[in-house]
């Protein structure tokens, strides 16, 4: 792919996003109000942060399925910090994120050393972490005491009328991760092991380091999503975030992150996220029954995937004679 092709790809996806948005905005007046947009953005935070993390592992040609359970566990852990150690809200969230990041790094290291397929390995952690979340919470929902609830209000305040603090955090995370992948050695190594594992190894890239980095990012972002959302809500249930994994992966796929690794952009994930959000918000805004949301998201995903496959096949047929064949 050339830069131009990547740009065109993101543009097409952005076009689709705008189409979805405009389509619903025609029928739902609140969609194009400032508050409507603010609500849409705010509602995208959990999926956005998690999708960004899982997207990084997908770019490294790996897959972190543990994100949903990790978010639930970190939600519980963060609230335990607040309740037990009586630390401030922000401190508790930071602690939660650090723990999630360390867990992710360890998970990446083990996967790199053992060479176990990350899909398989993280099915294990997906189930195990859920158990740990139940254990840490005593199988009950953990709540922030009523008298401290006002300390969490800052998460619902809005900046400039559109942005809540969580949505600013999410946008910040997207910018940081994009810059990380674009401008740093470690980021390039993550892309390198995704675009050509053996080639990268032969070039002297440390597969271990790149895996640790990718899974640490994924873990930390899932933890951030879980911590922010539970603190904002004032409660954490150990069985929460059960549909998060699929939504996060959907955002990545709509955004053009390839399962085989190396291909895709952070901008794409953001566009995919908003497309998904506009669609889900729109369907529910129209008052359609819940099953319509699933049907709509599923259909959109399949349409996007089929479209990108057809474009690629057309292109490869067109390019075929020039390609060296071995």
């Amino acid at each position: 792919m050339s830069r131009r092709e990547i740009f065109m790809d993101v543009m097409f996806r952005t076009g689709l996003m705008i189409l979805v948005y405009v389509g619903f905005a025609l029928f739902i007046p609140s969609y194009y109000s400032v508050r409507g947009v603010a609500a849409l953005l705010d509602g995208a935070v959990v999926i956005g942060l998690t999708g960004l993390g899982i997207g990084v592992t997908m770019l490294a040609a790996e897959f972190d399925l543990s994100v949903g359970s990790l978010a639930a566990l970190i939600g519980v852990v963060t609230l335990n910090f607040i309740n037990g150690a009586e630390v401030g809200m922000v401190t508790a969230i930071v602690l939660g994120v650090v723990i999630a990041g360390v867990f992710g790094a360890a998970q990446g290291l083990v996967i790199a050393i053992t060479g176990i397929n990350s899909l398989v390995f993280t099915i294990g952690s997906l189930i195990g972490l859920r158990g740990l979340a139940l254990f840490m919470s005593g199988e009950n929902t953990v709540n922030i005491p009523v008298q401290r609830l006002e300390e969490t209000d800052f998460l619902s305040a809005s900046v400039l009328g559109i942005f809540s603090i969580p949505s600013l955090v999410m946008i910040g995370a997207f910018v940081l991760v994009a810059a990380f992948l674009r401008y740093t050695v470690w980021g390039k190594e993550v892309l390198a092991i995704g675009g050509g594992r053996t080639e990268a190894r032969a070039a002297g890239v440390s597969i271990k380091r790149a895996m640790v980095v990718a899974f640490a990012i994924s873990g930390a972002l899932a933890g951030l999503a879980g911590a922010i959302s539970c603190v904002k809500l004032g409660s954490a249930t150990p069985l929460g975030f059960d549909t998060l994994l699929l939504s996060a992966v959907t955002a990545c796929l709509i955004g053009g992150i390839a399962l085989e690794g190396g291909r895709g952009t952070v901008t794409g994930i953001f566009v995919g996220l908003l497309t998904l959000r506009f669609l889900v918000g729109g369907v529910s805004g129209l008052g359609a029954p819940f099953w319509m949301q699933n049907l709509a998201v599923g259909s959109l995903l399949i349409v996007v995937i089929v479209a990108q496959l057809s474009v690629r096949q057309l292109k490869s047929r067109h390019d075929a004679p020039a390609l060296p064949v071995h």
Binding site: E199, A202, A203
Partner: peptide
């Protein structure tokens, strides 16, 4: 065998 990562 080449060790060039095509996507970089």
């Amino acid at each position: 065998e080449l060790s060039i990562v095509p996507s970089l």
